[in-house]
Amino acid sequence: MNLTKTKEFAKILRLHALNMTSKAGSSHIGSMFSIADIVAVLFNDVLKIKPKNPNYKLRDRFILSKGHSGGIIYAALAEKGFFSKKKLEDYCKNGSNLSGHISHYKVSGVEFSTGSLGHGLSVSCGIALANLRRNVRVFNLMSDGELDEGSNWEAFMFASHHKLSNLINIIDYNKLQSIETVKKTLNLEPLESKLVSFGWKVFNVDGHNHKQIYSKIRKKKIRSKRKPICIIAHTIKGKGVKFMENNNLWHYRAAKNEELKKAIKHICR
């Protein structure tokens, strides 16, 4: 892992996401900043993928279950060369395939379309099961509010029952959901022990610390115990732009004029 490069990549991703949502006047920038560092590590240092051969059979599968953060994945894919960066300008525009919630149709590199919360982990279980004997890992990235959906808990049981050791589920635990805090809406705690009791190997990481994230999801660690792995990534919604951090207004608003300039400054600092 080259920490300087990953840091730079995370910055580029944030800038893309900021500009894309700002230009389109579209939502969910806070949710994208929350996962920017996780996505940077995944796409820069972890995922075995081939931009020139996107359907390469033994690729790692990455599924964004919190589909409302699709913009930053499009940015990562464009930066990695799956399609041209110019295409990002179409994000949420009339006639575009780059929808606000991630969609695979005519977008190279997107493994699966989501947007309704609580679908990704089950699909990831299916993909992991199909590839259990192959050298293919499945990464699912979900949000914390998403864990309100019961489907996830069905999938948690399934994954450990079937010993899906090639499945890595990452929870973006930014402690905020649509309206209020997770704690106030539907408390997840004690989250770690819940997941452990469901038969998962669980790690807690600082979701903005590249080295920590990497150390838990790099190849060597995977497939040790015949258990699926869950990373609880402690994050901050809106991370990287001070006035967006922990403020759910930015679940809905896009940065305009002065806000945009200020936000760019924060990211480039």
Partner: peptide, 8 residues
């Protein structure tokens, strides 16, 4: 919610 995609 046209720009948000088919899920919406």
């Amino acid at each position: 919610y046209g720009v948000l995609g088919m899920s919406h």
